[in-house]
Design a protein around this nucleic acid. Structure first.
Length: 416
RNA sequence: GUGAGUGUAGUUCAGCGGUUAGAGCACUGGAUUGUGGAUCCAGUUGUCGGGGGUUCGAAUCCCCUCACUCACCCCA
């Protein structure tokens, strides 16, 4: 094999592609019932769209972007996530002028230059939604409601939905410092990763999985205690609305998001059995991003769902049987021509019809019909043709009936 | 970027220094001259990932390289 797909990309083959389509259609219908409209943005953007929004020092920007120069020497990047591009479009097209609250959803491929592993690919797919123009915590709760409803429609009602608030640019720095001060004395005992995080992202220490770091953080300052009054009220209302809406959730005060633009509400939906990459959906509020992009001060909130990870969860309980209704078996040139003609007429009427290409012995055609899992086989041979008839064989019951050629279409289209 | 594991037929894998590299599944044909699934019989399929080395002899041992997989960092 000399030609291969690009590392970290994959082909979505039948029948798995049916699961994808099911997920995409279900999500789209569901979101539209909540008043969201689809937006399609390009898969590439000028690099600053991402560097300025996601954060210069995040891993995504520092080492995971597919960035290259186009022929005009402009730096272009394949989108590593959806929100930044949607915000860019929102500002560029002045969508805030259309309606004070604007709801959008999107789906499509994203690209990150990482080492692939289970549940992580260089080209991966997300389905996401964003609400612009309101800081009302009802929206935060409603988005989670929409999401958990979608998941249960997909048969995934048992997933763990974790929520948290990480404050805003006013109160977060103080919390950051409090965390730093707490760990400063314990710095030598932390794992080497967390020693590095102490400088780059101290809040991450709260989320470290190594047992020693877990132990060390008992008694560490809690985010929720450091929220300013406005953020605190927002969070309290948010969780209250979740309860009213009956959205099952758990509080994870250690939940930190990796992207710089998040404010206040953050959440993540975790699944078991996916390997190390177990976040199926993640999102949060980003009240400052639109303004950073040069738009009017516009609070916003959204999430992204990992399609590959979701498909992995629903594919085994998903059986989408595709089978031809009719398989045409023909013997001899005249019969083959008749079969071709009949097949085209049946297909025009919406009957899934398969032809036995390459002819061969009837036995071999029957075998192919069986492998194609056809419901019926229509057998046309010289003997039948001369009498103006064909044999219709029910592959399940083995019942075989003789039909006159002029009645075939009528008969077949009226089969139960 | 770091670490570990695995690369043998279309596919799943066996063989782990000694003739000409094997099995199941799949595929093709036959038993059944025009009737599928089960059974039986026969047949096709390989740069043993690539390159170099050790050896009388390498799929097997060593080195390099590439690919895949999983994990870390991080994240959907």
């Amino acid at each position: 094999m000399t030609l291969r797909g690009v590392k970290g990309t994959q082909d979505i083959l039948p029948p798995e592609v049916d699961v994808w389509r099911f997920l995409e259609i279900t999500a789209a219908e569901h979101f539209e019932a909540y008043g969201f409209r689809e937006i399609r943005t390009p898969v590439m953007e000028y690099t600053p769209v991402f560097t300025r929004s996601i954060g210069e020092t995040t891993d995504i920007v520092e080492k995971e972007m597919y960035t290259f120069l186009d022929k005009g020497q402009r730096s272009v990047t394949l989108r590593p996530e959806g929100t930044a591009a949607v915000v860019r479009s929102y500002v560029q097209n002045a969508l805030h002028a259309r309606s004070s609250v604007y709801k959008l959803y999107y789906m499509g491929p994203m690209f990150r230059y990482e080492r692939p592993q289970s549940g992580r690919y260089r080209q991966f797919h997300q389905i996401g939604a964003e609400v612009f123009g309101t800081a009302d915590p009802k929206v935060d709760a409603e988005i989670l409601h929409m999401l958990t409803q979608l998941l249960s429609r997909l048969g995934l009602s048992e997933l763990d939905c974790q929520v948290n608030s990480i404050g805003c640019p006013e109160c977060r720095p103080a919390y950051r410092e409090a965390v730093r001060n707490f760990f400063r004395a314990r710095l030598p005992e932390l794992c080497t990763e967390c020693q590095r995080r102490f400088d780059t992202n101290p809040l991450r220490i709260m989320d470290c999985k190594t047992p020693k770091c877990r132990e060390l953080r008992s008694g560490a300052p809690a985010v929720l205690d450091h929220l300013d009054p406005a953020c605190r009220t927002h969070f309290e209302k948010f969780t209250r609305f979740l309860e009213i809406l009956n959205v099952p959730f758990s509080l994870n005060t250690n939940l930190v998001r990796g992207l710089d633009y998040y404010t206040r509400t953050t959440f993540e939906v975790i699944a078991e059995g996916l390997g190390a990459q177990n976040a199926v959906v993640a999102g949060g509020r980003y009240d400052g991003l639109v303004q950073e992009f040069g738009g009017p001060a516009t609070p916003a909130m959204g999430f992204a769902m990992g399609v590959e990870r979701t498909v992995a969860l629903i594919r085994e309980r998903f059986s989408y049987e595709k089978r031809p209704r009719i398989f045409m078996a023909a013997l001899g040139q005249t019969a083959e021509e008749k079969a071709l003609e009949l097949a085209s007429e049946l297909r025009r009427r919406g009957v899934a019809t398969e032809l036995a290409y390459d002819g061969g012995a009837l036995k071999s055609q029957m075998k192919r019909a069986d492998r194609a899992n056809a419901e019926y086989v229509l057998i046309i041979g010289d003997e039948e043709l001369s009498r103006g008839v064909a044999q219709l064989r029910n592959m399940t019951t083995k019942e075989q009936t003789e039909l006159t050629l002029d009645r075939i279409i009528e008969h077949v289209t009226s089969l139960p």
